[in-house]
């Protein structure tokens, strides 16, 4: 049996990738791991449930969306702009690593233990903050909104409370995300 391939071109963490021949039915998770050596997004359940594998996709108008790479074919991402967990931190002028605000908040709150689910939580929290920049949430609804946004991410060390606190505090500390 031969595997049929198709050329795939997309942008990952700001860099153009491809066109490269990729099997038609290959899942994005395998493409990131095996073709790009970006192993940060985790293979957890492989069934789209645990959300350890999620990455950010830029949609129309720059709005961010979370996509599960274990159940989404690599070719769905053709022509799209993707940010994996490797694409959040940056280097400053001195070459030092600067974590994203979400990553920094997770460190400060000791939010994770084993860290397996963390790429998914970083993705989920970043997408939530992007959403609130576009449409701020009322203070009274904040707890609920954070819970709903992170709810689908599974953490087997059960660090949910610290993840939740980290994201909530970051939102409260960032101007323009909360109204009222």
């Amino acid at each position: 049996m031969t595997t049929e391939t198709k050329p795939l071109a997309l942008t990952v963490n700001g860099r153009p990738v491809g066109p490269v021949d990729v099997p038609e039915g290959l899942m994005m998770q395998d493409f990131l791991h095996e073709y790009l050596n970006l192993t940060g997004s985790r293979m957890g359940c492989g069934q789209g449930i645990c959300h350890a594998c999620t990455v950010i996709v830029e949609g129309e108008g720059g709005a961010l969306r979370e996509m599960r790479t274990c159940i989404t074919g690599a070719h769905w991402f053709a022509g799209r702009t993707v940010v994996t967990v490797e694409g959040h931190a940056r280097h400053d002028a001195k070459g030092e690593i600067v974590l994203s605000p979400v990553q920094q908040a997770f460190i400060e709150h000791f939010a994770f233990q084993c860290g397996y689910c963390t790429p998914g939580f970083v993705t989920g929290a970043t997408v939530l903050i992007d959403r609130l920049k576009r449409k701020p949430v009322a203070r009274a609804e904040l707890e609920q909104v954070v819970t709903e946004a992170l709810d689908k991410h599974i953490c087997r060390c059960t660090g949910y409370v610290r993840y939740h606190t980290a994201v909530r505090d970051l939102i409260l500390a960032t101007p323009g995300l909360v109204s009222g």
Binding site: E24, G25, M27, Q47, G48, R68, C70, I71, T72, G73, H75, W76
Partner: peptide
């Protein structure tokens, strides 16, 4: 078929065979 492989096959299988207890 392209949409199926991209969005459905991850759980329902490339040949529509599904995953027991999942899909």
């Amino acid at each position: 078929r392209g949409t199926y492989l991209n969005l459905c096959a991850g759980c329902h299988g490339a040949d529509g065979q599904g995953i027991p207890h999942v899909a």
